[in-house]
Each structure stands twice: as structure tokens, then as C-alpha cells.
Design a protein around this nucleic acid. Structure first.
Length: 270
DNA sequence: TCGATCCTGTAG
DNA sequence: CTACAGGATCGA
């Protein structure tokens, strides 16, 4: 599920459901999801603490605790972090869970076990900076900054957009959608884009993410699992072979960095 | 900068 | 059975 819009939706629900709760008990079913990978550490460092606030940095969820600790949760490909009404009735594939003072449960589900829960001293979370670039929905993300980042990078545009150290939060879907909207070829080196095109890409990122946050937030209020593309009208992602809504040419799929990239060969030229 | 790797589930 | 999955990291 999780690119920036979905992670943001998860955060909003946690602010509603988890902030103010106290962690009564912690259970780690799969130590692989914890960092440090000592299964007891998460419990030792978070039991008894109150959840004070929920923040988001890129795709990272930060749970601020009352004991000077912060839990950094990364959902990776298939993770989810939700509050359930009764900790006794846990969904399948829960890899770690927290019993809350109210009897509710905060559960980390993750079929592929790729996600991570990392315990930090709150003072050390600043070490995230450096690995996580500018927040694309913040005021810090300006056309000027984006031009500067672009000018410094020879990466293909798609890989650049997915590089969390540059702009934090885009993943495989929204990177492809932003490139389509801006009519940029996914293999085009960033450095070689003309300034008006860089600016167009900037606007596309902003627009795609704002629209997706909007609809993800409402989709996530609904019970049940909304799935890929159900709430966001994807134009190219996953649409190999289908006609482009703009020009009618068939959407192509190529591989970049071991991932699939979808694009329209008519609208997005090199 | 590329490929392998972490894991498991699901679609074809 | 194989291919592939909305992510990131590590070593070559």
C-alpha cells in the first residue's frame, strides 16, 4: 500500500485512534521487523509509555512516546499499522502488536515481513535527515529547490523521483503518474531536462500527491481494504498494453532499477 | 549504478 | 510452476 499518500492516511488515523493511549504490553511475533533486531528491546523501551504524537517523514511513521523514545515504523511494500478495537481479536499476519490501556490494540501487519519498527532515543531521530530528503508537501519544497536537485543529478527521471534522499515519499506508482502528467520520459536523465520541463514535473509531483493524499485519506476511513488504483485514477501504472487516455498509444512497461516502469511512448518522449 | 537480497502472497 | 509485487539496503 504505502507511498506518501497512504502513509499519511495511516498517520491521520493513528492520530485519531492511538494518540493518548498507553502501551501496556508489546509482543513481537517476527523479530525480523524490529530494529535493533533484539526482540525484547522494543518491549523494554516502549512498555508503559504513552503515545504523545504521530508524525510522518517521507514514508516513515514516527510515534513519539512519553519516555524520550520514538518508534520509527516503515511499512515498506505490504505493511500496515492500525488500531483495532480489541487486542484479543487480531488479524492474521500481525508481525508485532501493542496492547493499549483501553484494551484496544495497535497492530503492525505485514505479509512480506519487509517492514521495520525501529526504536530510537527521541534525540537521535535526527539521524533520519540525510537519508530522507525534502518533504514534497511542505513549504521547503519549492520550484527553485527542485531545479537545484535536478541540475545535480544524472539519474534517469524515474529513479530520481524514487530516490528518497532527494524528494521523500514518491514510490513506483506516483513516480510513474507524475512523469506521465509532466510528459517526461522515465529514462531521461534529470540534468538534461529543460527548466520549463523541470517546473512542469515539480507541479505534477505536487498535484499528484495532493490529490492522492486527499482521496487516500477518505478511502482509508472506510472499513475494509481499499486496493491499488481504487481511489486514485492511475493513468499509466499497471496499464501495460492499454491505450493512453490522452493520445491512444499503448502504454509500455520497462524495467528500471529492478522495478517496473509504465509510461506512454506517445506522450513521454526522450 | 547495477544486481542480489530480504520475505511471503497471489495471479497467470 | 513462474512472474511479479505500492521498498530499501548492501556489496561488487
Amino acid at each position: 500500500m504505502p507511498e506518501l499518500p497512504e502513509v499519511e492516511a495511516v498517520c491521520r488515523k493513528l492520530r485519531r485512534d492511538a494518540v493518548g493511549e498507553t502501551i501496556v504490553m508489546v509482543r513481537v511475533e517476527r523479530p525480523a521487523v524490529t530494529r535493533p533486531q533484539v526482540p525484547t528491546q522494543l518491549a523494554v523501551e516502549s512498555t508503559g509509555a504513552q503515545i504523545l504524537a504521530v508524525e510522518r517523514r517521507g514514508k516513515n511513521i514516527l510515534l513519539r512516546l512519553s519516555n524520550q523514545r520514538t518508534l520509527r515504523v516503515h511499512l515498506r511494500m505490504t505493511g500496515n499499522l492500525v488500531v483495532i478495537p480489541d487486542i484479543r481479536f487480531r488479524p492474521a499476519l500481525v508481525r508485532a502488536w501493542f496492547e493499549l490501556g483501553s484494551g484496544k490494540g495497535l497492530v503492525f501487519e505485514d505479509p512480506r515481513v519487509l517492514g521495520k519498527i525501529h526504536v530510537y532515543a527521541t534525540a537521535d531521530v535526527g539521524s533520519l535527515e540525510g537519508d530522507v530528503g525534502v518533504e514534497p508537501l511542505s513549504e521547503a519544497f519549492t520550484p527553485a529547490l527542485f531545479r537545484t536537485l535536478a541540475a545535480k543529478s544524472r539519474q534517469p527521471s524515474k529513479l530520481f523521483l524514487m530516490d528518497q534522499r532527494k524528494v521523500a515519499g514518491l514510490g513506483n506508482i506516483y513516480a510513474a503518474e507524475a512523469l506521465f502528467r509532466a510528459r517526461v520520459h522515465p529514462e531521461k536523465p534529470m540534468q538534461r531536462l529543460r527548466t520549463p520541463v523541470v517546473d512542469r514535473l515539480y507541479e505534477a509531483i505536487d498535484g499528484v500527491l495532493r490529490e492522492a493524499v486527499e482521496s487516500a485519506a477518505s478511502a482509508y476511513q472506510m472499513p475494509g481494504v481499499a486496493s491499488e488504483g481504487e481511489w486514485f485514477p492511475v493513468k499509466v501504472y499497471g496499464r501495460e498494453g492499454e491505450p493512453c487516455a490522452v493520445c491512444g498509444r499503448r502504454i509500455k512497461r520497462i524495467a528500471q532499477g529492478g522495478r517496473s516502469t509504465y509510461f506512454c511512448p506517445g506522450c513521454q518522449r526522450k
